[in-house]
Amino acid sequence: MAELLRTIKYESDRVKGFGREVMSVPGCEQLESCIQCGTCSGVCPLSIYMDSTPRQVMELVRSDFKNEVLHSRTIWLCASCYACTVECPRQIRITDIMYELKQRAIHEGVYPKKFPIPVLAKEFHKMAHNHGRVTENWLATWMFLKTNWLAAIGMWKLGLGLFMRGRFSLKYEGIKRKGELARMMETVDNIDIDKLTDVKPKRKPAH
């Protein structure tokens, strides 16, 4: 007999305060006013493959179902096309909330192992961080080696095609003043941004 999963949720399944925490991040505040109309899912081109629809993700966040949300594939399927964000009748910046959730999932290491999207994100981050620029073909190579090296073999044709057309860089692109960028990042690491809520706006918007 197939194994049955418990689907009822008890209050103890909630990570109380999670929703509040997400909604306090700049850009995520509007989630409070979500009316669960489903416009986000209706316009999302990737919703075809999502395990929870974007609307459901929004409700899970608001209701503190942290584990369910961070394990969801939906946040990784978001391709940042911003269709949901511009169409939401409550002006909720759904794409930005997805980014926030991705960051939290990576930070807590709860994303599915060998799932290529977070791996790409991390590799991209590492490469940009270390070299200042990204060399796409090497990025893809690293990603495939870390997730599914068999798939990398399947990509040989594309790689060869790019090479033939002069679109494959053998060398790593990078900036000259790598130390400068590293120092900047170090500075950021030393600031606790969550403690900066009291910083007052410095100037009015330009427009």
């Binding site: 960051q103 994100a121 991209f124 981050h125 940009a128 003043r177």
Partner: peptide, 25 residues
């Protein structure tokens, strides 16, 4: 001169603030 990666999409998924730092440089 010596521009760096803008901090694009994939970077933002890891650290949005640092992505903005990349862009701001």
């Amino acid at each position: 001169d010596d521009w760096n990666c803008c901090g694009a999409t994939a970077y933002m998924a890891v650290d949005e603030v640092k992505a903005c730092v990349m862009a701001s440089r």
